[in-house]
Amino acid sequence: MADISFILNGKNVTIDADATKRLLDVLREDMGFTGPKEGCGEGECGACSVLMDHELVSSCLVPVGNAAGHEIITIEGFSEEKRYEKLANAFAEAGAVQCGFCTPGMILAAEALLNKIPHPTEMQIRQAISGNLCRCTGYNMIIEAIQMAADTGDGLW
């Protein structure tokens, strides 16, 4: 066990945890967040996605020791942003939400993409969410939503 400090949704946090503990478990069980979810535990499904230094990562594969000194943003933190609102509205408008289990991860994958490429092509969107599995939507309505957010989000990204 060791004190591990990082920035979580804009706040400095220090936890006393085993450095090999999964960031996902820290977020869900120690911090009480429900946004990051466990779908596979193997970095394959993306339901546990969070942003680490503004890049998309699978929190089930991040030993919390690797988060030390870095900035973590979960959907709970991101949902305070204007960019979230833009994405959320587009997801609603496009019908991109079904069971919702993949949804927070998808939103964060979209945010990570739009941060780098504010006006992505369809293929760039597909690649950006290729590690976020969705079993309900077949993806096309999610892709449309991200496109919609990009089209109307001028200046936000």
Binding site: D18, A19, T20, K21, R22, L24, D25, R28, E29, E38, G41, E42, G43, C60, L61, V62, P63, G65, N66
Partner: peptide, 25 residues
């Protein structure tokens, strides 16, 4: 990065990965 080691040693939620050696981050 941990993307291989964390997969190979993963357990279900709430259980530490089953590393058998001390870990060097």
């Amino acid at each position: 990065g941990g993307t291989d080691l964390m997969v190979r040693n993963h357990q279900s939620a709430g259980i530490l990965p089953t590393f058998t050696k001390d870990m060097l981050f």
